[in-house]
């Protein structure tokens, strides 16, 4: 069920899994909401780099990058991406970056 989260005067439309329904609703406040759900205490420069790379790629290509491409663009090994985002690049990083929910045979 879609619901709307109100936070610090901003509102976000999300699905059951807590993914943003509309990428353009992404703001800094969104990061704060997702951090808590995704088990991240503090956002450092590396988190921000992953998020920036995902958003740039999504704006240019209309899809999320493959894991391999994300690793190449950020120069982070997959292991490190899991250290940054415990739920991994899909459920963790993409959700936080405001990208649409990964689909397929997940």
């Amino acid at each position: 069920m879609a619901e709307t989260i109100e936070y610090n005067g901003k509102s976000f439309d999300v699905d059951e899994d807590g993914f943003l329904l509309d990428f353009t609703q992404f703001t800094e406040e969104w990061l704060e909401i997702v951090m808590k759900e995704e088990g991240i205490a503090e956002l450092n420069e590396e988190h921000k780099l992953v998020i920036d790379v995902l958003q740039d790629y999504y704006r240019k290509n209309g899809i999320a990058p493959m894991v391999r491409v994300l690793s190449k663009l950020t120069k982070f090994k997959l292991k490190h991406i899991y250290e940054l985002f415990p739920s991994g690049p899909g459920k963790g990083a993409c959700k936080m970056a405001g990208l649409p929910k990964p689909t397929g045979c997940v």
């Binding site: 069920m1 415990p86 899909g90 689909t103 997940v106």
Partner: peptide, 24 residues
């Protein structure tokens, strides 16, 4: 059943298939 669903456990990127009904 609705389309897709992304749930899981921390540390892993798979193992659980999320699913929601469209008649909750």
């Amino acid at each position: 059943w609705k389309h897709g669903g992304i749930v899981g456990v921390f540390g892993y990127g798979g193992g659980i298939i999320g699913r929601y009904s469209d008649k909750p």
